[in-house]
Computed example of a mutant assay.
Amino acid sequence: MRRLLLALPFALLPLSLVYAHDDHDHEHGSLGAHEHGVAHLNVALDGNALELEFDSPAMNLVGFEHAATSATDKAKVAAVRAQFETPLALFGLNKAAGCSETDQDLQSPLFGDKPVHDEDGDAHDHEHSDINAHYKLECTTAAQLTRLDLAPLFKAFPATQKIQLQLVGPNGQKGVDLTPTHSAIDF
């Protein structure tokens, strides 16, 4: 399953090329760029296994990107981390699918994680902090998993205005931008 999620960007490469050449919306040209108001979500459904990988600028989620030093900022970071520790409350899945979390990995410099290094071993500049969440779920009745609704996530984090979603599922691959008014996609 991990290989499937890692292969997702390559499988959807033709979609990113279409986005990069879209004359109506140039901000898709760099799908991995740090852009306030925009988050990224990769979803892979393989049999009963579902993986979700979410990446967002911290600004969208906590309202700032600097290290939390005040009690108020620390409380915001803790509250957001607690929300992401319960993914089934943020990512709307059909309860009849019987999905339960088997693994999660939350990372951010705001959570005290060490800086990420690039291929050259250089630490990334952290004036732009991101929050990353990776979840593995097992769904007992995956056939009931027909739709993913991100309305709860948009409601919890109103500064998130767009989620660039890439999905690989039983009906093939899809790439779509979801917004608070268009927040769901079929598998």
Rank of each mutant, 00 (worst) to 15 (best):
D113V: 10
F154G: 07
A7W: 00
T69V: 14
L50K: 02
D103K: 15
L145Q: 01
A82Y: 09
F54L: 11
A71M: 07
M1R: 13
F187I: 01
M1C: 12
N94R: 10
A71E: 11
P180D: 03
H26V: 11
K155C: 07
D46W: 00
V176K: 15
A143K: 04
T141M: 00
A71G: 02
D46P: 00
Y135L: 13
L41P: 03
K74S: 03
L93F: 00
E127V: 09
N94V: 07
L61S: 04
P109L: 02
G121R: 14
P180E: 02
D46G: 01
L148K: 05
P170Q: 00
P115R: 13
P109D: 03
S70L: 10
I131S: 06
I185S: 03
Q107L: 07
Q164K: 08
G63H: 11
K95E: 06
A44P: 01
A123N: 15
C99P: 00
P9H: 02
N132F: 09
T140E: 02
A143W: 05
L148A: 02
H124V: 14
G169Q: 01
H124S: 11
Q166S: 05
N94D: 13
E138F: 04
S30P: 00
G63I: 13
K74A: 03
A142G: 00
G175Q: 11
A143P: 01
P57C: 05
V77D: 00
D130S: 10
I131Q: 03
L93A: 03
D177E: 10
E53D: 13
A133E: 04
V168F: 06
A7D: 08
L6T: 09
K136R: 14
A143S: 10
K74P: 04
V43G: 02
H182N: 09
Q161E: 14
A159H: 13
A89W: 11
Q144I: 06
S129N: 12
A75H: 08
A123G: 14
S30Y: 00
G63R: 13
E53F: 10
T102L: 07
E101L: 11
F64G: 12
A78S: 14
M59T: 09
L153H: 06
T160V: 14
T181D: 10
L137V: 04
A156D: 04
V176G: 11
H66T: 14
H26P: 09
A133H: 05
S183T: 08
E65F: 01
T102M: 06
M1L: 14
D23Y: 10
E85K: 14
A123L: 15
N171M: 06
H182M: 10
F187C: 00
A184C: 05
D113K: 06
E65R: 04
K76C: 03
K162S: 08
A78T: 15
L110D: 01
D23P: 12
Q164W: 06
D113M: 06
A58Q: 04
P152T: 04
